[in-house]
Write a protein that binds this DNA or RNA. Structure first.
Length: 697
DNA sequence: CTAAAGGCTGTTGATTGGCG
DNA sequence: CGCCAATCAACAGCCTTTAG
């Protein structure tokens, strides 16, 4: 088979292939993406007479290579090596030789300064994977234990009993084929099998310690209930957890546990102590972080940048550590997580997410640039890291930052490996201590960072859809009950169809993030204590202090004196953008001549004016081309003025003081109505309807 | 009829303790 | 520190019910 395909290729094509630089089967396999492309190429090489044979040969090669996954990695590795060998040349800045030497020197200085990213001090160590990730082998310790459990359960086993009833000829459980017993566990990984085995261990240990008289493999309902009850003391969901693990063993392995009896108990509402969430970071921490970031360099900067990424992205730690940055668009840093948490038809689809870059959002905050570019230099860092990562390894966003011996919080080199959760949390607490947190730092954890954006969303009373966008639609994050009303009650992420099928979800999320942060920094600016405290601390700017600066629906955003950037973001968030070419005179005669007109409206009510159509979609979208009438001639103007004070009249119940100077006779009414145009009649109609509704109320 | 909400289940993620 | 195991928290999927 291996040689067959080679004979199909003519000499002419071999020569053409060699000229193209093909050196291996892999090269050939990935030269084209389809047979059509291969044929096209062969014809282009003027070998059309042997093109069909070549196409057949290529598809064989492709199939062979596809079967062997490692080949893909090899090609990747060679590609990486090639890229490393020829680094991208920096564009040489043209310097006019006529410039005086002083200026030249300044220019060079400027160039050097420009290149300073803060990451020059970062020493990156090579990647040395300490352990390889084991594949899901059919033979493993867990499967072995399951088999032993099967044998021990013997004739008490439900699956075995079913087998006997079928009439299968086995005299005892251990005679059953191992493969048949374990077939029900094939689709589970070893890690997944650990949990039920642990639950079993727990049951066995409890049985031996508490009621040795009960049968281990055929317990009575009361013993099992007592066990589950004991487990329930552990925490709100502990009983549920263990119940499911045992149910798993009953279903798949056939252990005879009377679990149905305990279903309500296990599935009931959470019992045990109440759930405590990680404490969310205060706004002061965010300001302090950006402040520190502006001055940090070296490994410390990498750590602060990682914290920033976690803070502004609302991403799980695990997801952060299996993501990679894709690109940046000036306001957002885009990243891609290779495996999300949500499941669709049994698979966990990857998702894209974004982190705001804060361009222009921090204006007016003392000590901070208007655009604190927290991600500056990350590109260089990852350009350095990427070639050292062996092909086929999971990507990561937080590199391991080793600790140095100098001090408790001193940081050493940056290693080319993913940082561990524990280490990151401790480093994060170290940062908190340096920010003046003291022993309080222990109360913070990674989720303190993760909860920041969610708290902000809740604080701003975002509607549930937008709040979901904050978390990249992975779930609705818990909001801190800071805001009181408007709390996000449901934890379950809902997917209205528009979002479910939208391909640009992460961009929507990015816009929401930007808008929230824009408002956040604006609030922070106005809520900053004056004068600034000498020592910065969490309590220097708390969520409670932001409360004063909270934007409310009653106040126009303009009058809140938002920064132009914030206004821009808010307008995107709340209104959406409509790119209309604002040519007032050319609106009726657009240059393109392509004009959308709907023929809506009643024929008899349409104003019969030439060129004045009912709709003008180009300019006004789906609003009618004429504004509705808002004012009425006397005596009806009294109704309009009543409408204006209607809310307060209704609330104060002061209807008795309202005097409407309207015609008192029917003839007078008809006479006054005669003078109104149709638009004015509509206006009067709706105004009266409004008044009546208010009166009823 | 569809979309969404809610109940039930099964799985993944976070956190901590302990060991070398 | 680095890693693993244990344990609990909390999610998402699937199905049924309900609103409109």
């Amino acid at each position: 088979m291996a040689e067959q395909w080679a004979r199909l290729i003519s000499d002419d094509i071999w020569r053409a292939l060699t000229a193209t630089g093909v050196e291996s089967a892999e090269d050939l396999a990935y030269l084209f993406v389809s047979e059509d492309e291969a044929r096209e190429w062969a014809v282009l090489q003027q070998c059309s007479h042997s093109a069909d044979n070549f196409v057949a040969a290529w598809s064989i090669v492709r199939r062979l290579v596809d079967e062997d996954r490692t080949v893909v990695d090899r090609v990747l590795a060679s590609e990486l090596a090639r890229r490393r060998a020829t680094p991208k040349a920096r564009p040489v800045r043209a310097v006019s030789s006529s410039a005086p030497p002083e200026q030249l020197f300044k220019k060079r200085r400027a160039a050097v300064t420009d290149s300073v990213t803060g990451l020059e001090g970062v020493r990156v160590l090579d990647y040395a994977p300490s352990s390889s990730v084991g594949l899901n082998l059919p033979v493993s310790r867990e499967r072995d234990r399951l088999w032993k459990l099967w044998v021990r359960s013997g004739s008490d086993n439900l699956r075995y009993q079913a087998l006997l009833q079928d009439g299968t000829l086995v005299s005892n459980a251990s005679e059953c084929p191992l493969a048949w017993v374990l077939s029900k566990f094939e689709k589970f990984s070893d890690d997944q099998l650990k949990a039920p085995l642990r639950a079993w261990d727990r049951w066995e240990a409890w049985q031996a310690a508490t009621c040795p008289q009960a049968n281990l493999f055929r317990p009575d309902a009361i013993s099992l209930f007592q066990f589950i009850e004991q487990v329930a003391g552990g925490g709100p969901t502990a009983a549920r957890s263990v119940w499911h693990q045992l149910q798993f063993l009953r279903d798949r392995l056939g252990l005879n546990l009377p679990l149905a009896d305990l279903k309500e108990f296990g599935m009931g509402k959470a019992r045990g102590q109440s759930v405590t969430q990680a404490r969310v970071v205060e706004p002061a921490f965010v300001i302090g972080l950006l402040f520190a970031l502006a001055r940090a360099a070296g490994p410390g900067r990498v750590l602060l940048q990682s914290i920033c990424a976690a803070l502004f992205s609302c991403i799980r730690w695990r997801h952060l550590q299996r993501s990679y940055f894709t690109h940046e668009d000036g306001t957002l840093l885009h990243a891609h997580c290779i495996q999300g948490k949500r499941r669709v038809q049994g698979v966990r689809p990857p998702y894209s997410w974004t982190v705001p870059l804060l361009t222009g959002l921090c204006g007016g905050l003392p000590g901070l640039e208007p655009s604190p570019d927290w991600a500056r230099g990350l590109q260089e860092l990852f350009a350095d890291l990427a070639p050292r990562i062996p092909p086929g390894t999971q990507p990561f966003l937080v590199p391991r930052i080793q600790r140095a011996d100098e001090g408790l919080w001193a940081l050493g080199a940056v290693a080319c490996r993913p940082m561990g959760f524990r280490a990151f949390t401790e480093a994060f607490r170290g940062v908190l201590v340096q920010f003046g947190e003291g022993s309080d730092a222990e109360t913070f954890t990674f989720n303190s960072l993760r909860r920041f954006m969610a708290t902000l969303a809740n604080f701003l009373h975002l509607d549930p859809q937008q709040a979901q966008a904050i978390g990249h639609w992975q779930e609705i994050p818990h909001g801190a009950p800071v805001g009181g009303s408007g709390a996000l009650a449901s934890m379950r992420a809902r997917f209205p169809m528009a979002e479910r099928y939208s391909g640009v979800r992460h961009q929507v999320a990015g816009r929401v993030q930007l808008a929230c942060l824009a408002i956040f920094f604006d609030m922070a600016r106005r809520a900053l204590p004056d004068p600034l405290p000498r020592r910065w601390h969490s309590s220097s700017l708390t969520w409670a202090m932001l409360e004063r600066a909270r934007p409310t629906a009653e106040v126009e955003f303009e009058t809140m004196r938002h920064s132009p950037q914030a206004l821009d973001e808010v307008s995107h968030l709340l209104i959406g953008s409509l790119n209309v070419a604002l040519t007032e005179d050319g609106s009726s005669e657009s240059p393109s001549g392509r004009k959308l007109c709907l023929t809506g409206g009643r024929q008899n009510s349409r104003p019969d004016v030439a060129g004045n159509t009912w709709w003008n979609v180009d300019v006004r979208g789906f609003l009618p081309s004429m504004d509705p009438v808002k004012t009425l001639p006397p005596p009806w103007d009294a109704v309009i003025s009543l409408c204006e004070i209607l809310p307060s009249v209704t609330i104060q119940r002061s209807w008795t003081h309202v005097v409407l100077d309207l015609p008192s006779t029917m003839d007078g009414v008809n006479e006054a109505l005669e003078e109104l145009t149709e638009g004015e009649l509509e206006c009067l109609h709706s105004a009266l309807g409004y008044v009546c509704l208010a009166y009823e109320f």
